[in-house]
Amino acid sequence: MTGLADASVLAPPVGDPIVAVAHVTLRFGGVTSLADVSLQQERGEVLAVIGPNGAGKTSLFNCLTGVYTPQEGTIEFRPEGKSAVSVVGRRPSRVNRLGIARTFQASRLFNALTAFENVRVGVESRLHTGPAGAMLLLPRTRRENRRSRDRSEELLAFVGLTDRADELASALPYGDQRKLEIARALATGPELLLLDEPAAGTNLAEKDALQDVIHRVNTEMGVSVLLIEHDMRLVMAAAHRVAVLNFGRLIAMGTPAVVQHDEAVIEAYLGRTDAGTAPEGGADEAAGPEEGT
């Protein structure tokens, strides 16, 4: 993974946020998943979101993609060269069309479709053929078909799944499923890509491959990446900055090195919180943020 070391050194341009979350609070009945969370991600940045189980990381993603509507706060997305738009209150497909794509913590591929078709669905969501054009096989339909086929092949090659194009999504090994989900998300041409624990459940070799994909998504495609990840080695290598959530609150934000030595973060991970309910740490996070050093 050459070049990854530079990634953490090479700071992204500052002062041009791609997404700005301000005072977001999300409640489910008595449970507060996000409490007054404010954070900004710079354009071109890889920002990691870490935190113990149930800290609210996935909830934050769901707010950013229109799946959940927070009770309070604003979320603004600034597509390149356009004015800021609010994400809150838009349905997920609209948010995706603004330029935010995501993967899911537990893969949600279209299982009965092949790897190629999965990516193609993503590419085609940006094309224009309607039912009439499709049934009559108009020239534009053929043109678009060619285009979507080529683009899907490119994206499969990008994540290294060319050989597996015709296999069913569900038949792929776990690591390949994660890569396929990334390819499908990229197919919609996002400016911001949200990855929810892409390396969870993968082996070491697969983790390295994923790390490489994330790096190239960021540098070659110029896509900003918001990354939820428990694997600290991956976070340290891939992220420019790290945001730490605990019990729905943002408790730290900064470069990996700084966050790693933050008192509050260490406490959160070791479970020495004053709240009686210690976070139920899995093996991954019980090891704490020090793991990567």
Partner: peptide
Amino acid sequence: TAVREDEVAAEAVG
């Protein structure tokens, strides 16, 4: 097909 298979994922790809 995408809608039939997984509505949430379909929405997520636009």
